[in-house]
């Protein structure tokens, strides 16, 4: 009977608070469970971008190939480097850099760009981040074709001990250590998620952050050993000029590039890069979880 129905207020408030680490973890975990959704959307983004072009996503590969070729040739002349070893170095470095820069710059826009979806469909906010990182992974997969081609052409220059620039350290050459690129890249992608979460939430509240990041990222590119060889710094830094090494070492991006690039080129695997990246993974995720705990529920108000 309708007449006997009560429309009373609920009795006790809930035990689960909106601001809790439990909810923050739940957001990330639920987003991971939605991987069919962001997996599909990530593919869709790529297909979408090249929808009416004739060769489609091949453009990603072509643009990477021309950039790597041009940069590799130009800087090998400037640094008097050996093209067969320097060109693969620049290519791999630039491929990894492209992934990083994509995740950071698109990470700042990740919630702003998805305003409509955030305001109309209840979903963990991490879904949008994972979709973006997945899209960048797919871009990288397209670019790996360039790596394979370059590797095919210059394999004979890389399969034995070699140096990239004169005076630089000698690298042992390609070997089974190439498999380290896989855990290296997984770590990189895991870090990309917290970076995008952190920058995404802050940028949604403070709209100055995206332009700041966009303008600083170019500086980071030149400070990171991508078109120049970090080994040169080491050879220059004999004796009292240790500070030059710091230019690279204090740059976190260098370590992230190195854990993926070194195995792919047969460079010696230097464990201190892994340690630094491991530290960033732990502290970065802790920071992101704190932000997520405090401001996860605010994102839909701020976008």
């Amino acid at each position: 009977m309708q007449a006997t129905r009560t429309f009373d207020h609920p009795e006790a408030p809930p035990a689960v608070k909106s601001r809790s680490f439990k909810r923050a973890f739940a957001d990330v975990r639920e987003a991971w469970d939605h991987r069919e959704l962001w997996g599909h959307l990530g593919w869709q983004d790529i297909k979408q971008r090249y929808r009416r072009s004739v060769i489609g996503p091949l453009w990603i590969t072509i643009s990477m190939a021309t950039t790597a070729l041009a940069l590799g040739l130009l800087y090998s002349v400037l640094f008097k480097a050996n093209v067969p070893t320097f060109l693969p170095y620049v290519t791999v470095g630039f491929i990894v850099w492209n992934f990083i820069v994509g995740c950071v710059t698109e990470g700042t826009d990740v919630f702003i760009a998805n305003e409509g979806l955030i305001k109309h469909l209840p979903a963990p906010i991490s879904v949008h981040v994972m979709r973006m990182v997945w899209r960048q992974v797919l871009f990288l997969a397209h670019n790996l074709v360039v790596y394979l081609v370059v590797l095919g052409i210059f394999f004979t220059a890389l399969d034995h001990p070699y140096t990239i620039t004169q005076g630089g350290p000698e690298h042992p050459g390609l070997s089974w250590t190439i498999v380290f690129a896989i855990p290296g890249f997984v770590l990189l992608a895991v870090n990309a998620v917290w970076v995008a979460l952190l920058f995404g939430v802050i940028s949604t509240r403070f709209r100055d952050i995206p332009p700041v990041v966009h303008s600083f990222i170019n500086l980071v590119f030149f400070m990171t050993p991508i078109v120049w060889d970090a080994g040169v710094l080491q050879s220059l830094a004999g004796g009292d000029s240790k500070w030059r090494v710091l230019i690279a070492e204090l740059n976190p991006v260098f370590h992230f590039v190195e854990i993926v690039r070194a195995p792919l080129l047969g460079h010696a695997v230097d464990w201190h890069h892994w340690a630094v990246v491991g530290g960033f993974t732990v502290f970065g995720w802790l920071l992101a979880l704190v932000i997520l705990r405090n401001y996860r529920a605010r994102v839909s108000y701020w976008v």
Partner: peptide, 13 residues
Amino acid sequence: PVFDLGVGMDPEI
């Protein structure tokens, strides 16, 4: 939720 029938719809696909 069915709020705005257009959201989540991509005009290009």
